[in-house]
Computed example of a mutant assay.
Amino acid sequence: MPARCLAADYRYPRLEGRPSRPWLSVFAAPLLLSIAASAHASEGASSIYVPGAYNDFAAGLAPPPGVYARNDLVRYEGEIGTRPLGGRLDAGLEQTLWFNLLKLTWVTDVEWLGATYIAGINIPYVFDVSVDLNAEFAGQERFSTGSNDGFGDPYLVPIALNWANGAHHTTAAVGVNIPVGRYDEDDRINLGRHYWAIDPTITYSWLPASGWDLSLTAGILFNFENDATDYTTGDEFHLDVLAAKYVTPGFGLGVAGYVYEQLESDSGPVPDRLDDGFRSSGAGVGPAFMKSVSLGQTPVTLIGKWLHDVSSENRFDGDTVSLSAAWAF
């Protein structure tokens, strides 16, 4: 779900250790952006899913009706080691990525099935992505570098339903990756994935009066074929978790983590030649914080995260650092 914050006049009950204004953070937002370094290596070793982006402080909690915004500034640095692809490509790739993600959320006053109806969109812009690629073709080595900038694929959430029951908050959503970001199969670096994907997710938050916060988001990415390369990324399971404690009503500390697993191997000209197929998995963990501040008369929530990959197979291995600001219009 796209990120959100709460209006200034909304309050939790004044309970010890529990935040008094949960504009805290987000409707756990799919931060749908993945940079392609080359046609096969990208599709076989990266994803629309970005670790840590789907879940946050009080991720399942819905704000009052209104329009909300969140802006994420993200830096990712990672690498993927040498691996065979169809017996023809042996590549080691290092990547540094700076991008911005604007998330807009509309919380309506419409109720359906006992839930609040919500919609949103995420719009990514890449300030800079740089890669160092060391590839070997038929025994001949080649080393190259490159960079790019521009818009990536937007992510639309046409429907999300939020239920609240005491300390329990649940959101069911369906997202759609729209392949309109810059893409050329002959380019070294692409900003879009060039394929559609449907992403149903379920988010749950437990927010007791004691000031603890346990939030998680699980989903499955159903990927369609990239018709420029005849490549289909296998469907992907992703789980993001955050456990936090609100030290004061406006300040929280927590630990974030993720687990990612492809449910099936990729298919296409290269992975189909591999005896064991080609699929990815990964896991990571790191600290997170939130802080409520005021900019003039506007309440703003700041959210920071650092996720370190502790396990990666056929996937980039590195660090994701983000700083976000959320506010209500």
Rank of each mutant, 00 (worst) to 15 (best):
A160Y: 04
Y155N: 04
R182V: 09
V180H: 10
H169Q: 11
D186V: 09
N177D: 13
A172K: 06
V157W: 00
P158A: 05
A164I: 07
G166R: 08
N162K: 11
I159G: 12
L161C: 11
I178G: 01
V157Y: 00
L161Q: 05
I159F: 11
A167I: 07
T170R: 11
W163I: 06
P158W: 03
P179K: 13
G166D: 09
V176L: 14
V174R: 03
T171Y: 03
D184W: 08
A172N: 03
P154Q: 01
P154Y: 00
G166Q: 09
A160I: 02
I178L: 11
R188H: 11
A167F: 05
W163S: 05
G181H: 03
P179G: 13
A164K: 08
T171V: 15
Y155F: 15
P154R: 01
A160G: 12
E185W: 11
G166P: 02
I178H: 01
R188W: 08
T171G: 02
V174G: 04
A164E: 13
G175N: 02
G175P: 00
E185Y: 12
Y183N: 07
V174T: 06
I178P: 02
P179R: 14
D187L: 08
L156R: 00
G175A: 11
R188F: 08
A173T: 05
G166N: 10
V174N: 05
V157R: 00
R182N: 14
H169T: 08
G166F: 07
T171F: 04
D186W: 06
P179D: 13
P158N: 06
P179F: 09
T170H: 07
A164D: 14
P158R: 02
V157K: 00
N162F: 06
H168P: 03
A172E: 05
P158Y: 07
N165K: 13
D184Y: 10
G181S: 10
V157A: 04
N162A: 15
R182F: 09
Y183H: 09
L161W: 10
N162S: 15
A167P: 03
V176G: 05
N177A: 15
Y155R: 01
A164T: 13
H169R: 05
R182K: 15
V180Y: 07
Y155L: 06
R188C: 04
I178Q: 02
A167G: 06
P179T: 11
A173G: 02
I159A: 14
H168G: 10
V180I: 15
P154S: 04
T171S: 09
W163A: 06
V180Q: 08
N162W: 03
E185M: 12
N162Q: 15
E185L: 13
L161G: 07
V176Y: 06
T171Q: 09
H169M: 10
V157F: 01
N177Y: 08
W163E: 07
A173H: 01
N162R: 10
N165V: 07
V180D: 10
L161R: 06
G175K: 00
V176D: 02
A173P: 00
H169E: 08
P154F: 00
T171L: 11
A164Q: 13
W163Q: 05
V176A: 10
P158L: 09
V176N: 01
Y155G: 03
A160K: 01
P179Y: 13
V174H: 03
A172T: 05
V157T: 08
L161N: 06
I159V: 14
A173W: 00
V157C: 04
